[in-house]
Amino acid sequence: MVEAMEILQQIGQILAFLVLTLMYSVRSLVNFFIPAAYEPVKNVKGDVILITGGGSGLGRLLSIKLSKLGAKIVIWDVNEKGMEETVKMVKSNGGTIHHYKVDITKREEVYKVAEQVKKDAGDVTILINNAGVVSGYHLLDIPDHLIQRTFEVNAISHFWTTKAFLPSMISNKRGHIVTIASMAGHMGCSKLVDYCSSKFAAVGFDESLRVELEALGVTDIKTTCVCPFFIHGTGMFGDVAPKFTPVLTTEQVSESVILGILREDLYVMLPKSMRYSFWVKWILPWQVISMYMRHTVPDACPTPGMK
Rank of each mutant, 00 (worst) to 15 (best):
M1S: 09
A4T: 09
E6P: 00
L8S: 13
Q10E: 12
G12Q: 01
I14N: 04
L18V: 14
L20P: 00
M23K: 14
S28N: 06
V30P: 01
N31E: 13
F33V: 15
P35S: 15
P35K: 05
A36W: 00
Y38L: 15
D47E: 15
V48D: 05
L50Q: 05
I51Q: 02
I51S: 08
G53K: 04
K68M: 07
K72F: 00
V74E: 10
G82P: 06
M83L: 07
V87Y: 09
I97T: 03
H98D: 08
Y100D: 10
R107G: 04
E109H: 12
A114N: 05
E115Y: 01
Q116K: 15
K119P: 01
K119F: 00
I128W: 03
N129P: 10
V134H: 08
S135V: 07
G136V: 12
L139V: 10
D141M: 03
D144G: 11
F151C: 02
E152Y: 09
V153M: 01
I156S: 08
I156G: 07
F159S: 03
K163T: 04
A164Q: 09
S168F: 10
S168H: 02
M169V: 04
V178G: 03
M187W: 04
G188F: 07
C189G: 05
L192K: 03
Y195L: 03
C196G: 08
S197R: 01
G204Q: 05
G204E: 05
F205A: 05
E207H: 06
R210K: 15
A215H: 09
V218T: 12
T224V: 09
C225F: 00
I231V: 13
T234I: 12
F237N: 04
T249Q: 03
T249I: 05
S254R: 11
S256L: 11
S256V: 04
S256H: 08
L259R: 15
R263W: 01
D265M: 05
D265I: 01
L266R: 15
L270C: 13
R275I: 14
S277Y: 04
F278R: 14
Q287K: 13
Y292K: 01
H295V: 11
P298N: 09
A300M: 09
C301D: 02
